[in-house]
Amino acid sequence: MTLINRRTFLKGTVAGSVLAVAASAGLLTPTRVLAAAWPAAAFDAKTIDDALKGLYGTSAAADSKAITIKAPIQAENGAVVPIAVSTSLPGVEGIAIFVQANERPLVASVALNGADGYFSARMKMGKTSDVKVVVKSGGKLHTASQQIKVTVGGCGG
């Protein structure tokens, strides 16, 4: 338990101080201008709802059985957790992956332009958490989730 407490503590303090330093040095603004298309607000968000709003302007998503998440039930190494998302929904415009318990829940978001409704990646997980997938299809958001148990976290220092 001490390990987890230390990890949480470190994450909180380090994240705070890094942001403060970056802001005071005026570093945040130029980075954001450079990466104009990169949705900074969504990736900086600390909750899935805020991240979704940053990405799509709304956090309203309906549960869908047409989304398949292929990921381990239990991951031994939280630093590298494979995940593959596929969906039979038509006209998929985007797929986003969130890890609920991560300091920054949004892992990745893909905008698809003619590619099939499929995306796979490897993600970091600090601890056991629900993983939520949101698929944008036909202008609406659809969602599915799965819990992944993590033996050794992959986000701490």
């Binding site: 298309a37 892992v107 990745a108 978001s109 893909v110 698809l112 332009n113 990646a121 490897r122 970091k124």
Partner: peptide, 13 residues
């Protein structure tokens, strides 16, 4: 022609 654009955060391995 662009097929897909992936935006990534710090949660990617």
């Amino acid at each position: 022609k662009p097929l897909a654009i992936a935006s990534m955060g710090i949660g990617v391995s």
